[in-house]
Amino acid sequence: MVKLLRKILKRLKRNTVSPLSWTSLRNLQPLSTTFGFDRGTPVDRYYIEQFLKANTAHISGSVLEIAESRYSRQFGHGVHTYEVLHMKQEPQVTIVGDLTNPGTLPENRIDCFICTQTFNFIYDFKSAITGAYYLLKPGGVLLATLAGITQLSATDMKQWGDYWRFTTQSAAKAFGEVFGEENIEVSSSGNVLTCTAILQGIVTEELTTAELDFNDPVYPVIITIKAKKRLHGIDQ
């Protein structure tokens, strides 16, 4: 029922927006300052969902997300516990804690941690990576996405900050220092057109699948990381 309502609302929202004119991009103001959420589906969401769809085999057991459990429920299979982490106690939150402070987190509890577009909002992101490692069971998997070439989030800047944009090199070094280089897979998704799209607020519905799926590593909209915790505890 919730998914159906989302689809209906998304369709109504798109129908109220004027069609994109590709000849009108020479402007000093973007079409949307909220990544395109007010117009349809932001481009980075397309890439995030493609990444999670490709890794559904890992989304099982005890699965954790930040603030909600949407992707766990959408892409998970054999999930027996839907965990939600947040710094504040909310009805849906099962773990109140801070990723940068392992002392506030349960150790070796999570089989799969889905952490999308989060580390760029954490100033001490290296400590947050350590916190993610701490949460995972030995053999557990972190599925993370990081912002590449995108807008800044004005809303998040006011709430807690928007600090970082990543490359595949910086992600590989930072996550490799914690998980071990041999235990991570780092990639990127995007191209010059989709980078232009997310900067302007042009949405997925206004691009073709071929345009979205063409990958140029020089123009990453998002960086993806699949990181597996060592089977023999935390031996950093």
Rank of each mutant, 00 (worst) to 15 (best):
V221Y: 03
L143N: 00
T209M: 12
H58T: 00
Q117S: 10
N215M: 09
Y47V: 02
T208S: 11
D124C: 07
S69D: 12
S69F: 06
V178K: 03
T104S: 15
G190C: 01
T100N: 09
S69K: 00
F166C: 05
Y163I: 07
R109L: 13
G36S: 02
T145A: 01
I122T: 00
K158P: 15
R39F: 02
S32M: 01
V63A: 02
I225N: 00
R26E: 14
Q92D: 13
R73S: 11
G140L: 00
E68P: 14
E107T: 10
H86R: 10
D124N: 08
E83Y: 07
T94R: 01
K88I: 12
N108E: 13
D98L: 09
G180H: 00
F75G: 03
N27S: 13
T118N: 06
D98R: 06
D235K: 09
I184Y: 00
T224M: 05
C195N: 08
H58S: 01
P220D: 04
S60R: 03
S24I: 14
T23F: 11
V141A: 02
V186K: 02
G61N: 03
I95Q: 10
V17D: 08
L199P: 09
W22E: 14
R165P: 09
L25E: 13
I8T: 11
V17Q: 06
E185L: 12
I222K: 03
G97P: 10
S21T: 15
Y47G: 03
K126D: 12
N101I: 14
L64M: 09
I198G: 02
F37Y: 08
S60V: 04
T100M: 09
L207Q: 04
F121M: 11
H80S: 09
Y163Q: 06
T100E: 11
Y123E: 14
M1V: 14
G180I: 03
A147Q: 05
V186E: 05
I122M: 06
A171R: 02
K3L: 13
D162F: 03
N120V: 10
I234P: 07
F51Q: 03
G201A: 04
V93D: 15
W22M: 10
V141C: 04
T209E: 15
S189H: 13
L212V: 07
E65Q: 12
G76I: 02
E206S: 05
L146Y: 07
